[in-house]
Design a protein around this nucleic acid. Structure first.
Lengths: 209, 209
DNA sequence: GATACTAAACTGACTGGTCAGTCTAAAAAC
DNA sequence: GTTTTTAGACTGACCAGTCAGTTTAGTATC
């Protein structure tokens, strides 16, 4: 009996996401989203009782996709190598591949966008973001911790989880830089540079002084 | 009541900055700012014809302060050491000191905040942000380039400007993480980790495999 | 007498949100 | 196999509130 509701709902979410990544949540009106999604104003509120509900749905979808992506990367890394250090390096390299050639519009993390607009989200959704970021950090941090057990780093007191945080930061910074800089490849190179650090830290590349 | 206009103007700017860093520009109303600054509505518009003018003034002030800070750090680094590598390391370490014990409210960069709210600023102000970010990158990148001439890095094709970008990212990422994480010292440790990378890259610390 | 401010009322555009009603497609009744 | 029913999907005009910005009339300070 019904028309395909989920299709429309996803169109709304898609439109909202690009709009919000560009302008921020508060500055994106329901009208903006409605026009971008090419649906009527009423349809928007049919699917999302309030604008805040949209925000929550967006974050939930984003968090799910993020989780799937990270787990996918982890699995691929574990399939491609048995050594945890190699797995960590592959995990990072997969991010590199993903971020080759990102347009300025695509460049951006919904989590970061909302983190600069505090107070919009209810505590549970806020917690979802924190959990999602944490998941990423734990996966990479965990692999690095395993790696350190087998391959002692060339400096004594290296902290695997601090390294993961650093990588997270490089990712976020790259998003911001991508918006003002022209080079579409820069993001991947930033991550590449981090990978090089790991290689150096674990003595994968020979130091040639 | 008082006659000192610049004092009031600065109070408005101060209030606006903390408010905007917390909630974002669009979500911060003139009333919010006016109440936080404890001035009347009329006074706000006496000093800033439009809300956008406030945004511009804020960015200009922030960019100036940023410039002064970076140049100050550069000068101190150049005073404390003659070797460009040591200067670069000190330059980074000074950031570390600055970011010891940052509260979640303070954690944030106005440039990043506005970068996720595109369309608010006029092109000139936008350019000011880009220029400001670029200045930071050029100072660190330049020092690292000098350093590489004197001290060849242990890996062959290290790019000093890419390294500076990475550092910028770590800084930005640390701001975002600081908002959801409890540890006030984390930011400094993130930067410290980057410094360690530089030391490793330039062979300042001995690799002990 | 000019500058710096206050207090409050006001305007108009725009915002999130509502609602009475229309459309669509499939199931039920004949 | 045509007609009727039904319920979810969708529409767009409309409402009430909020926002940036204006105006006005007045006070305090130098």
């Amino acid at each position: 009996m019904p028309r395909d509701a989920s299709k429309t709902k996803n169109r709304i979410l898609d439109a909202a996401q690009t709009e919000i990544l560009g302008k921020g949540f508060a500055q994106t009106s329901v009208d903006d989203i409605q026009q971008a999604a090419e649906i009527s104003r009423g349809t928007f509120f049919y699917h999302f009782p309030t604008k805040d509900d949209l925000a929550r749905a967006l974050i939930e979808r984003y968090a799910e996709a993020d989780h799937a992506l990270v787990e996918g990367f982890r699995e691929r890394a574990e399939r491609l190598a048995t050594d945890p250090l190699q797995q960590a390096l592959i995990f990072v390299a997969l991010h590199e591949d993903l971020l080759e050639d990102v347009s300025p519009e695509e460049a951006g993390c919904l989590f970061a966008s909302f983190s600069y607009e505090a107070g919009v989200l209810d505590p549970e959704t806020e917690a979802l973001i924190v959990g999602s970021i944490d998941h990423w950090r734990r996966v990479l941090g965990g692999k690095l911790a395993e790696a350190m057990e087998r391959h002692p780093p060339v400096v004594p007191d290296a902290d695997p989880h601090l390294l993961a945080d650093m990588a997270y930061g490089i990712l976020q910074g790259a998003f911001i830089l991508r918006r003002s800089l022209d080079d579409p490849r820069l993001m991947a190179r930033h991550i590449r540079e981090f990978r090089r650090y790991l290689e150096l830290l674990f003595g994968v590349v020979e130091a040639t002084p």
